[in-house]
Simulated scan of single mutants.
Amino acid sequence: MLNRRSFLSFATAGAAAATLPVALSGMAHAEDKTRPAPHMMPIPADAPNVAILIHPGMVALDLVGPLTVLTILRCRIFLVWKDKSPIATELGFSVPPTHTFNECPNDLDVLLVPGGTIGTIAYMNDPVVIDFLADRGSRAKWVSAFCTGSITLAASGLLNGYDATGYWALTRFLPLMGARHVDQRVVVDRNRITAGGTTAGIDCALVIATKLKDEEAARRVALILEYSPQPPFHNGTPAEAGPERTQKALEHRKGRDAEVEREAMLAGQRLGI
């Protein structure tokens, strides 16, 4: 049970984490204890190391939701990319990587891959990206992805032989790279945690929180975020939307989905599947 002091401490952390620039500033100085970011709680010495792959064209919400959860949980976050050039999201604003692939720790508690179809198409057969994922993922305690990030993760071979899910329009391509698609919002198979489309990133991060800490810690984060979705209608899955709306959505995606399928087939061939 939370006492008043504990609740205020978590609420303060939550308010800070909800502001992306502040959270990024805190991560950039996570290892520099002489320069703590304002309003950020210190990162414990034994904090879990979490690497999040960011890439040009990524979906901003794919990053912000899980980043907020894991920052409140007081993880040590590494936003990783090939270099430290600002990463342009699909909304037009940019996010600076905190570490390059080479600077990312070799041994991670969590390797997390968010999504964004444009980036998925561009990087699922990029040898630099795939080699990084395969290397860090081979040793990470937990390997996780959601939205189209599950497709990128599958392209690295890390979902071969695992139950997995991802963005509903693309999950049909997971078997091309050896994964078994399971139609659930979050799927846990051994140390692999995958989840559905963009908003499922928060669910995914909360499941990760239960693995890194415990359910009570994850529940505290959910309370701080007041995470209790009540949409005005239920239309977020093909089952809820119905066949007509789902088909219309697929028609709008036809060109890019064909590109994903092409890259998935190439990845499957590269993986010998």
Rank of each mutant, 00 (worst) to 15 (best):
A205H: 13
D203P: 09
A164D: 02
F173P: 00
S156W: 12
L174G: 01
N160W: 06
M177W: 07
I202Q: 05
A169P: 04
V207C: 07
L170S: 15
G178P: 05
C204G: 11
G201R: 11
W168E: 12
R185S: 13
I202N: 10
G157V: 02
S156Y: 02
T165I: 02
V182Y: 03
N191Y: 01
T198F: 12
L174D: 01
L159K: 09
N160R: 14
R180N: 15
P175I: 02
R190K: 15
I202F: 11
A209I: 08
C204L: 15
G161N: 11
A195H: 08
L176D: 13
R185H: 07
L212I: 01
R190G: 00
Y162Q: 09
A164S: 14
I202G: 07
R180H: 15
T199L: 14
G161W: 01
N160S: 14
K211I: 00
C204A: 14
I202Y: 09
A155P: 08
L212C: 04
T171K: 13
T210E: 14
A179E: 04
H181R: 15
H181S: 12
D189S: 10
D163L: 08
A179I: 02
L174S: 05
A169R: 14
T171H: 05
R185V: 14
T171Q: 12
K211M: 08
P175G: 02
G196D: 09
T210N: 09
G196F: 07
R180P: 00
W168M: 10
L176M: 13
A169I: 04
A155M: 02
L158S: 01
L170K: 01
A195Q: 06
L158F: 00
T194G: 11
L158D: 08
Q184Y: 04
D163S: 14
A179S: 11
N160P: 00
V188D: 03
L174Q: 06
V182H: 03
L159W: 06
N191Q: 14
H181G: 00
Y167A: 13
D163F: 02
L159H: 07
I193F: 03
L212K: 10
R192F: 02
P175N: 11
G157F: 06
K211D: 00
V186S: 06
P175D: 12
D203E: 06
N191S: 11
V188H: 09
I208H: 07
A195V: 03
A169Q: 13
